[in-house]
Nucleic acid binder design. Structure first.
Length: 219
DNA sequence: TGCCAGGCCCTCTTTAGGGCCTT
């Protein structure tokens, strides 16, 4: 715990990303059709990235209706490889956040594999943290959590940049809520990763120990 | 056109099953 606190005391810069895709799994040939991402630095969004990409196949009517992204819109979009090449520059070596991160990580890994690219940051999942921190929420879908915490939004959902902006606001709200509720000055990325993994009901216990450790370090 | 997954978590559990969440 002490090492975590030293390691990233000042490293809360993260890229929050969201993919729109042709389906649920790259293992069955699904591809990314849109990437949206924002960079959070010092508790605010400082940069944005959004791009449609042509997956080389027609997308289903379900996806057209779910995302509002049509085959026509993708017709003249650059190919996935071209966009992902550019996107790797955006993410750099930052840590990464996504809502249900295992989904976005699978697509990021699959698309980057195809162009022999990689990334060095670690993932954290806003959904898993929210399940711990907002146990009274009706459910932990992104839209529900945005409503639950009264996070301002323009009503756009299931588009990559809008969802990544929403996830970023949720992430910042969770940091704020955790800091206020557990009297913490700073909640580093690694602590958010840990919170998503501890068993239900032990958030308070874990943070109380974390607080004591912080006090010992200060002393 | 319609289908497909996987990690996490809870419980009526651990030699398992099913819901949640993402598109």
């Amino acid at each position: 715990m002490k090492n975590d606190m030293k390691q990233d005391r000042f490293a809360n810069t993260v890229v929050v990303l969201d993919f729109e895709t042709t389906g649920l799994t790259p293992n069955y040939g699904d591809r990314a059709i849109e990437i949206g991402a924002v960079l959070i630095e010092e508790g605010r969004v400082t940069e944005r990235y959004q791009a449609l990409m042509n997956p080389g196949m027609r997308i289903s009517s379900f996806i057209e209706s779910y995302t509002g992204i049509t085959n026509r819109m993708l017709q003249n979009a650059p190919p996935c490889g071209e966009v992902m090449e550019e996107f790797t520059e955006f993410i750099g070596d930052h840590h990464l956040v996504a809502h249900n991160a295992s989904f976005d990580k699978r697509f990021l890994d699959a698309e980057l594999d195809l162009i022999n690219q990689d990334y060095s940051g670690e993932f954290a999942c806003s959904m898993l943290v929210a399940r711990r921190v907002y146990q009274d929420a009706p459910n932990h879908k992104l839209g529900s959590l945005v409503k639950y915490r009264n996070i301002p939004n323009d009503g756009t959902f299931h588009r990559a940049l809008a969802d990544s902006e929403m996830t970023a606001k949720l992430w910042l709200k969770m940091l704020e809520d955790i800091e206020a509720q557990y009297n913490l000055r700073h909640v580093p990325f690694s602590l958010m990763q840990k919170l998503s993994r501890i068993v239900k009901g032990s958030v308070a216990n874990y943070l109380s120990r974390y607080n004591k450790c912080a006090a010992d370090n200060a002393g």
